[in-house]
């Protein structure tokens, strides 16, 4: 990928992140932090590529750790976020 294309992606993604969060009520701060913690669990994909292209034992060991940790980030992040959000019910919905 050409350098400038990468730079554009970087800039647009940075603005997107800023915009998405800027009008969040306090009550959602923790779930949102947890949710964004889940989203960077996408690191799992990179870890799979790193392990998938590993040839030496050392690379395989580190790659294995990367995948293990990445899977933990993704799955754990999802489970706790989902548990938190399923509790957000307004009094109208309840009745």
């Amino acid at each position: 990928m050409e350098g400038f294309v990468a730079l554009y992606i970087f800039m647009l993604a940075a603005f997107t992140g800023y915009e998405v969060i800027s009008k969040v009520p306090t009550i959602l701060h923790t779930p949102l932090m947890s949710g964004s913690n889940f989203v960077h669990g996408i690191v799992l994909v990179g870890a799979m590529v790193a392990l998938g292209s590993a040839t030496t034992t050392a690379e395989q060991v580190i790659g294995f750790i990367a995948v293990l940790l990445g899977a933990g980030n993704a799955v754990g992040g999802y489970v706790v976020t989902e548990r938190m959000l399923e509790m957000f019910i307004s009094s109208k919905e309840k009745n």
Partner: peptide
């Protein structure tokens, strides 16, 4: 890997704002 680039940077900036 574009998915990692975008998701990572979005979280990076959203997290900084938070």
């Amino acid at each position: 890997n574009p998915a990692m680039m975008i998701a990572g940077i979005v979280v990076g900036s959203a997290g900084t704002l938070l």
